[in-house]
Design a protein around this nucleic acid. Structure first.
Lengths: 336, 336
DNA sequence: CTGTTAGCGCGTTCAC
DNA sequence: GTGAACGCGCTAACAG
């Protein structure tokens, strides 16, 4: 059943080492021999045993990726980017979903450690990075995803949420809006505070008003609630634009405005969301949104990982921060 | 750097074999010894090398899962169910995304084969199952996910789409609708034809009319297009209910009906979707939908896999077919 | 360019 | 209960 290099060597009439050379350094073997060995491999259906390779090599050709939420499109895109980049380098990606649970995260870290992964890409669930520090000290490359380490001890890839907030509000100011509302919360979430900070800075430099309408979560329902609230105001006291901390909120706002038919989007109130989820494009009024380059994040994370693996310990810890991009649709600029 | 069982044995003052016993059969070792060995493991930070274990065991404790679309919530749920079930059995799941590409699928199959996975869960991208047949013949357990093999040669888990279609239309008939439209396409997709077949059967047995409104894809935009079409008809010629082949179409229909404000949902037209995506619940009128037990699918797939692994080749190929479930919301039954 | 040999780290015999 | 010896399949190093 199990066919090994030995069987291949026997059938091809060469020695073990030659088969190994054909597999790993074909250029060092006479073409005719390569041919013979390869046809032996084919006729036997030989498949390399990766465990044996790894055992020998001491390191696997697998990298681990632990995400906070497997169902979140942001993370599936990150995973996709990482997978593609890794595959090009001959690496496989093992994806684990911590579901924001520190326990589940630990389970995966243990698993990956037993598997001797070449490196670990992780969006940590908690604030305690000591476990990862130990891992890294033992020689496993670690790259933080969507999060910078406070003490600069880990390489990381992230997206500049402050810039994202700024881009959104600058766009609204550029199309002539003067009374902007930031809708989002809770402010305990870093992304929310960062996006808000960017919004504040852009509003100030553009000389426009910015009020804050806090939410208890980043959901469609909360968006709808705030939408109703805005609508209940006299028209003169309404903002002329809303920047929502994510697309779910934005969709909820839009639903509230349009359903009632009382507020026209974008004529009376323009809306900008964040994340550019699939539904942003097919909303009743297609939603202008800030897009995070999630796939690029995954790709760069793999590159940083490889740099660490290749350069060894001595490499300086690198931080790559992406700038998000604005996707303009009809919720801010009506079609002509 | 690399600490092995040998180091642990040395520190604990016991032999290699004893450490192995502590790790795998602690009950066969004196409690005091177990204690000593375990504290040696802890102080050395010893982590088992899985490659070595696998090499010895001949089989890995990893199972592969290849999905058609990593971004599709259905498959992320399947993956989640499989992961959870596998983790309980001490297995890890390696997830690959074929993206409907036969090439990518092959790459993953090869990868998994080299890793000597204990088994493979797969939603095949093409119709050619011979590659999987060879795998299975070589002793790797294979379970088809969301697809039955035509020749009964593989174990499989799937969801009964015919039953799903039937459930949807039966519900519409039960709430008094008599002129139902099936919206969906292209009919080359098995899920579409199955759901339609179920709808036809249920309509016949309930004695209600069923017309077909074909679409070119299962998208929001197509749903909206059909919605406009329905709306353009004289009120007397409109259906009083629509069963959409998936939720995206249903959302598009709803958008068309409600935006214009001309057709009330569910009073004039009731809508049932399929898949119960996250947006179904937060649609303007929350959407009644047919939910597929995706996580259960993943869980059962792992169980079938384990049955094959444990029982060996001789086990009869099992087919598990789940029946989907109707989630009733306001798009068919207005709130009181 | 080819063949031979010695482990990689672990789990499993056996004898003790 | 314990310990020593062997081999899983492969690769790297060296000798031919």
């Amino acid at each position: 059943m199990a066919v090994s290099v030995r069987d291949v060597a026997a059938l091809a009439g060469v020695s073990l080492g030659t088969v190994s050379n054909v597999l790993n350094r074909p250029d060092k073997v006479a073409p005719a021999t390569v041919e013979r060995v390869q046809s032996a491999i084919a006729s036997l259906g030989f498949v390399r045993n990766d465990s044996a390779r790894q055992l020998r090599a001491g390191r696997s050709s697998t990298v681990g990726l632990i995400v906070l939420d497997g169902g979140n499109p942001f993370f599936t895109d990150v995973a996709r980017g990482a997978e593609d980049a890794a595959m090009r380098k001959g690496l496989a990606v093992l994806v684990g979903n911590s579901d924001e649970s520190v326990d589940r995260e630990h389970t995966y870290v243990d698993l990956f450690e037993e598997r001797r992964v070449a490196g670990l890409l992780i969006s940590p669930a908690g604030d305690d990075l000591t476990r990862l520090g130990r891992l890294r000290d033992q020689g496993t490359a670690v790259v933080l995803v969507d999060r910078r380490s406070d003490d600069d001890h880990f390489a990381s890839v992230s997206v500049d949420d402050v810039a994202g907030g700024s881009i959104a509000v600058s766009h609204l100011a550029a199309i002539g809006r003067r009374r902007i509302a930031f809708v989002g919360g809770p402010f305990g979430i870093r992304q929310v505070t960062d996006r808000h900070a960017g919004a504040v800075a852009a509003a100030r430099s553009a000389g426009v008003e910015l009020e804050v309408l806090p939410t208890t979560s980043l959901s469609v329902l909360e968006g709808r609630r705030i939408g109703e609230e805005i609508q209940a105001r006299p028209a003169s006291e309404r903002p002329d634009a809303v920047f929502a901390a994510n697309d779910l909120l934005a969709v909820g706002l839009e639903q509230a405005f349009i359903m009632r038919g009382t507020i026209r989007v974008p004529e009376e109130i323009a809306i900008v969301g964040y994340d550019d989820i699939a539904f942003a494009e097919v909303a009743v009024v297609p939603l202008t949104s800030v897009r995070q380059p999630a796939q690029d994040l995954g790709r760069r994370a793999i590159e940083l990982l490889l740099a660490q693996v290749e350069e060894g310990q001595g490499v300086e810890t690198l931080h790559v921060e992406f700038t998000p991009e604005l996707v303009v649709r009809q919720s801010t600029v009506a079609e002509h």
